[in-house]
Design a protein around this nucleic acid. Structure first.
Length: 205
DNA sequence: TGTCCGATTGGT
DNA sequence: CCAATCGGACAG
């Protein structure tokens, strides 16, 4: 965390499938009045915009909810799912191309006590630690991310990404819970760090 | 305005 | 396997 270099807008303004893979191993940092939380990204999914039947922007849909996807890269797209959970996406490619990457799982690195509090855990043992951020809704709760952060600039100081360390192998699978997307449901657009215990279920390893 | 449904989660 | 829970998208 100390010395970690913040990712700039150029990182996001690239092909979405490349960004999705390059995000693995990077650090997601959230600064709040309660304190700082940091997690290492271990799982992502690409949402390919107009041509992707699983995307909120499929067919060119442009609504109040998803308008940030159409804007400039390096911003957060946060939306509510099932009336209960927030999901964090990072907007990619140039303005006018509504593509984004869903952050599906993190490895907790810093502020684990605060994460546990936000998740409603009474204690934090090694077993509970694995449940802190191993899903898109869980990690938003643990990191204190909600709809008020939709549109937030990821090159600012509230919510941002930074360089990480370590090497790993990337594996892919189809995306989770997009059965409604017909032929796009079978695209290999989910990316994970092989063997990492914080990857969400189902784990392909 | 009314209806349908979801890029999830946690408990049975 | 299934209920929880409600905003958003779209039809009328």
């Amino acid at each position: 965390m100390r010395n970690a270099k913040k990712l700039d807008r150029d990182f996001y303004e690239r092909p979405t499938l490349a960004v999705s893979q390059d995000l693995l191993g990077k650090l997601l940092v959230r600064e709040s009045a309660q304190g700082r939380t940091v997690g290492r990204i271990v799982e992502t999914e690409a949402y390919m915009g107009i041509e992707d039947k699983a995307s909120h922007a499929y067919g060119g849909r442009r609504t109040a909810r998803n308008k940030v996807m159409w804007g400039s890269p390096g911003h957060a797209y946060v939306y509510l799912i099932y009336g209960m959970y927030w999901c964090l996406n990072l907007v990619t490619e140039e303005e006018g191309i509504p593509r984004a990457v869903l952050i599906r799982a993190l490895e907790p690195l810093e502020g684990q006590q605060l994460m546990a509090k936000r998740r409603g855990f009474s204690e934090l043992n090694p077993r509970k630690k694995k449940e802190l951020t191993n899903g898109p809704g869980k990690l938003c709760m643990a990191m204190g991310i909600d709809g008020s952060l939709s549109g937030a600039d990821l090159t600012a100081d509230i919510l941002y990404l930074a360089e990480g360390e370590g090497s790993f192998k990337i594996i892919t699978s189809t995306r989770i819970n997009v059965d409604y997307a017909e032929e796009d449901a079978s695209r290999p657009w989910r990316f994970m760090i092989f063997g990492n215990p914080y990857v969400s279920r189902p784990r392909p390893f």
